[in-house]
């Protein structure tokens, strides 16, 4: 009896530092966001009067917010599947035992070392209609030059392409780690059995990689929902709000318009969207995951 109390106490002691950090930087802001979302706020972000769910009611009918939700979902669609597919292909290539493969592993994961801000600026120059390399290439091939970031039809895709490039490094590194964890004796067996590469990929690699794939997908999804930096630098949410993803909209409401209450309401909505997606992920997709 005494032992278990002591053990419990000891356990709590270990957890305490991280709990403290979580409480200060995560739980408190979360509760505060919820609290602010049902209030009007002054310019300093102090709640002034309680208005209940009015912010949420307005959000439902606000075409700009609907546009944000749509832009966010499209952005997720444009970034997550391509990132995973490209990163997985690269990881499979880089997992081969070939001379000099270290060089390629470093190259493929190198975008991990680039900050969002720095890579966004590079892409901004590449997309520039007057001096950008992309238009130059198109012009050299006889195509017509385009204003990639100024056209509502292409702006979101342009931002998504840049994001895929930025995210490949992280996904690649995790997937490569997962691949290297797969027991090599399985592949030896497959070799003896003489199965094709595709069969081996489908029956050995993908099932054994599924926990890693699941992790990468979940994290990438959540990341994609929270995209901010590249939007802020590349398009500032424009043109015509085509790239105003929810987090950018939250930022604009809170820190440009000083509408902290309204911004908090949007943050709460985003929280529930991401929560829902994550629950679906765990309830549906995880069943297919094969744990060793």
């Amino acid at each position: 009896m005494f032992r278990s109390v002591k053990q419990n106490f000891e356990g709590m002691l270990y957890i305490f530092p991280s709990f403290l950090l979580f409480a200060i930087f995560v739980f408190y802001p979360m509760v505060r966001t919820g609290y602010l979302s049902v209030h009007m706020t002054d310019f300093q972000g102090n709640p002034t009067n309680f208005i209940g769910l009015e912010h949420f009611r307005y959000l439902l009918e606000d075409v700009n917010f609907q546009q944000s939700v749509k832009a966010t979902l499209l952005f997720v669609l444009y970034t997550v599947p391509p990132t995973i597919i490209i990163a997985l292909s690269l990881a499979l290539l880089a997992n081969e035992k070939v001379k000099g493969i270290q060089l390629f592993r470093t190259l493929f994961s190198s975008t991990l070392g680039m900050s969002v801000a720095a890579s966004s600026v590079i892409w901004m120059f590449m997309y520039n209609p007057a001096i950008g390399v992309i238009n130059r290439i198109i012009a050299a091939l006889g195509g017509e030059e385009r204003q990639w970031l100024l056209n509502p039809d292409t702006a979101l895709i342009a931002a998504a392409v840049a994001t895929v490039w930025m995210n490949i490094g992280f996904a690649f590194l995790i997937l490569l780690g997962g691949l290297q964890n797969i027991d090599s004796s399985l592949y030896e067996n497959a070799k003896i059995a003489g199965v094709s590469y595709m069969y081996q990929l489908r029956r050995i690699t993908i099932p054994l990689l599924s926990p890693t794939l699941f992790f990468v997908t979940t994290v990438s999804l959540i990341h994609a929902f929270q995209t901010f930096g590249q939007i802020d630098i590349l398009t500032k949410g424009g043109p015509m709000n085509a790239t105003t993803v929810i987090v950018y909209s939250i930022y604009r409401e809170a820190f440009i318009n000083y509408n902290f209450g309204f911004a908090s309401a949007q943050a709460v909505v985003l929280f529930f969207i991401v929560l829902l997606v994550t629950i679906v992920q765990f309830a549906v997709v995880e069943r297919k995951v094969h744990y060793q």
Partner: peptide, 22 residues
Amino acid sequence: MKKLSLLFSLLFLLVGCSSEKT
């Protein structure tokens, strides 16, 4: 691994939603 990935996902989720306040 299962628990770990759940924990990580939640962590990302929570931190992201609160960053505009910190």
